[in-house]
Nucleic acid binder design. Sequence first.
DNA 1: AGAAATGCGTGTGTATACATAATTGACAAG
DNA 2: CTTGTCAATTATGTATACACACGCATTTCT
Lengths: 251, 251
Amino acid sequence: MQTVNSDRAYDFIRRRILDGDYPAGTALMTEQLSSEIGVSRTPVRDALRQLESDGLVSIRPRLGASVKTMDLKEFREMCELRLALEGHAAALAALNRNAADLREIQFALEAMRSLNERILAAKQEDPWRRDLIREDVRFHIAIITAAKNDLIKSEILRLHLINRVVAEKIERNPDKRRVPSKAETDARRRVVFASHREICQAIAAADGPAAKGAMERHIQDIIDQSLRPMSGGQSRQPTRELSADELVYSA
Amino acid sequence: MQTVNSDRAYDFIRRRILDGDYPAGTALMTEQLSSEIGVSRTPVRDALRQLESDGLVSIRPRLGASVKTMDLKEFREMCELRLALEGHAAALAALNRNAADLREIQFALEAMRSLNERILAAKQEDPWRRDLIREDVRFHIAIITAAKNDLIKSEILRLHLINRVVAEKIERNPDKRRVPSKAETDARRRVVFASHREICQAIAAADGPAAKGAMERHIQDIIDQSLRPMSGGQSRQPTRELSADELVYSA
DNA sequence: AGAAATGCGTGTGTATACATAATTGACAAG
DNA sequence: CTTGTCAATTATGTATACACACGCATTTCT
């Protein structure tokens, strides 16, 4: 980000992407954007390159920029990376947290619990979805903040944003996801909350390995959930040894 | 990277940085670079932004670009990140490796062993330093390749490059590092090799946790070594709880 | 004489004009 | 009806010109 104009362009496009106004795959043309934002193409180009390094945009030479999309392989790899980072962050949080950090984590946990009860009493989950996501994010942010490593924190947040943009539109089979029933979402939230509580307790006990293990299971669970409706549903399938014949195709 | 001109600028500057021609902190002025490379300022700017996202260059608005430098805090955080990533990569390698991957890893280990013996017989380590680094890198690359996750692989390689550029010039106290004796470097290489062998064995046994643990200890050891001559030598000191008074300063 | 203010030079940020590569459409041939 | 080629359009990449901010040195005022 440079002076005010590159910033304006960057903020504008980024906001549009994160708000879903530009869904994954949308072509981002510099001319159109520059006239829409009210600056010239140069700062727009700068902004797009910045967004590319954020992982939200992909730029191919002579083909222009577009909102990032991923195939299943890329998505899995990103999830795996997130698993590694958040797991490690949880371990660090258990070691490096101070009292204030712990309070913040416990507060986020409690907020989720009470929200959970309110949703249980409601007829459907959907109206609360936004709050649910916000509280979940709050919990995760509290932990990676307690880890006291700004670099890891920013990397994780970056992955979260990419995930948010890209997750909707992973190349999937004949889109056969169905809307889950209230009972299913209730059960799902219970599982998530139990994971959060387990993580929180491990961090409170300053037990690094336990925190890491709990967080890794939690993230893996999230990954499984978001990958289930897609092609090749099962994840984390231990890759078996490739035979010589199969190796031919692996080039 | 865009078409040929941005590429030319990117490759040129990147090479100069990695070769040490532009040490950490060097100011990178667009005009000078553009005339030197033979393109205009625009692709140079693009290249610099790309390098910034690689973490090799930092750009401050109106102040221009310079080769990335780090203070001790930033460096520690990067090392911690590398620890998390390489540890996880080792675990993945233990699970996902195929026979060819394992051969490559064992080959790299063997190459290091024989190189080690040659150096033991030599009078000083220094002439072999470049080979030593190359073999070490080969070993690490073999592992992160076997992990079968291109995203994690590229992240780790990125960190390695940043480390290479930045490590020379971390803000250190009255530069009191001394040249280690031959006996010391011999002992050091023995330790490194033992770590590598342990990692290799764990991966051969398809033991993920063992591979991760061994790799984490190995990286931690490397970090300790590179941080020892610097200010606040000890790393990984479990942060104790901050008192209320101390918290005032933590803002 | 010391400190503050001001003018100048350098370099970045921005806009725009030009060249070139890619896409789209039509048209012709099989 | 399909396919392949060609041209026109469109958007990108690059170069360059202009404007402004920052640093520095000289000047000026107290």
